[in-house]
Design a binder for these strands. Structure first.
Length: 201
DNA sequence: ACCGCGATGCCCT
DNA sequence: GGGCATCGCGGTA
């Protein structure tokens, strides 16, 4: 399966958010592939979107990566203890991005279990298996995505997204955790694979 | 099952 | 000094 190239990320942000569903997010750590299928995303539409960190043209050290060329990572630190991973979209200077909110674990299961629960995958109960990657902070813990990957080129060899054959059935809904965003809180910019058990609650 | 809350740090006003 | 694109716990039912 091929790695998604630059042109994928230069498409319209909502298109990217929808098309990322079913693709494989990969972090290569010490030669090991840690990966999961993307099952939930949200689109953040830049300076016009009250929910986006770049609303109104806000441009600071924290959100600078949002303004980079499509196909880079925007990783930010939130609530004092979690990271969230976005794929930046659009051309340089455009501050749009897609937040990856949940994964279905595929490769490196023991690595993820160690990162989340300090044990092996086979020792996890059913609830812990689901909770490995069913939220934006959780998937970053499981894949050890942190500040050091902010601005990383997703067309490189450390952190990237792979093509997949299957085109999943999807649906849209309101974005999570953005009640501060006025009317924009009601936009249907959250997308998920139907009936996938790793979609966040 | 759902609900409420505290954790915890960094950024930006 | 306020608030945050979250999570997990402990309460009640």
């Amino acid at each position: 399966m091929g790695k998604l190239d630059r042109s994928f990320y230069l498409k319209d942000t909502v298109t990217v958010a929808r098309q990322l569903l079913g693709k494989l997010l990969v972090h290569e750590v010490d030669g090991n592939k840690i990966s999961g299928l993307i099952v939930e995303t949200e689109a953040y539409l830049g300076t016009e979107d009250r929910a986006a960190h770049s609303f109104g043209g806000r441009r600071t050290p924290r959100n600078e990566a949002m303004y980079s060329q499509g196909g880079h990572a925007y990783v930010y630190f939130i609530y004092g203890m979690y990271y969230c991973f976005n794929a930046v979209t659009g051309h340089e200077g455009v501050s749009e991005a897609v937040l990856v909110r949940a994964l279905e674990p595929l490769e490196g299961l023991d690595f993820m279990a160690a990162a989340r629960y300090q044990t092996s995958y086979s020792e996890l109960n059913a609830r812990q298996k689901i909770n490995l990657t069913n939220g934006p902070g959780k998937l970053c813990m499981a894949l050890t995505i942190d500040r050091s990957l902010n601005g990383e080129d997703l067309c490189g060899n450390r952190l990237y997204i792979e093509e997949r054959d299957e085109t999943p059935d999807i649906c849209s809904s309101k974005r999570i955790g953005i009640d501060y965003a006025g009317d924009d809180r009601d936009l249907l910019l959250r997308f998920n694979i139907l009936n996938n058990k790793y979609v966040s609650k």
